[in-house]
């Protein structure tokens, strides 16, 4: 899938995560930046979740920034999904 515009999801609240996505030029690969309040304990797990999600949507070129405040896995998944749908202009049923 192709990222066509800047998009964001989530919040800075505790137990939530902000996901920012930017389009990049084709074939420039995945540029992922992770910042987390539980970096030491879950940094690797968060990175894996992001890569899995990008694989799932078949996204190869992306600039993705996350700022995590201790979100659980379902929340991270949901925020990633929301941001991706918005960045690909596929979001439905919202203003």
């Amino acid at each position: 899938m192709k990222i066509i515009k800047k998009a964001q999801s989530g919040s800075f609240e505790s137990s939530d995560i902000i996901v920012l996505i930017e389009p990049v030029v084709e074939k420039s690969g995945r540029n992922i930046e992770i910042d987390s309040s539980v970096m030491l304990e879950f940094g690797d797990a968060i990175a894996k979740l992001i890569l899995d999600k990008l694989d799932e949507y078949n996204i190869t070129d992306i600039h993705l920034i996350v700022k995590d405040k201790g979100a659980l896995e379902p929340t991270i998944n949901a925020r990633l999904e929301t941001a991706i749908m918005r960045a690909c202009d596929l979001q439905k049923g919202t203003l």
């Binding site: 925020r79 999904e81 929301t82």
Partner: peptide, 14 residues
């Protein structure tokens, strides 16, 4: 109104 998609996806995951 502009977070309806986010909430729907979050609730589904939860």
């Amino acid at each position: 109104l502009n977070q309806k998609d986010a909430a729907r996806i979050l609730v589904r995951n939860v």
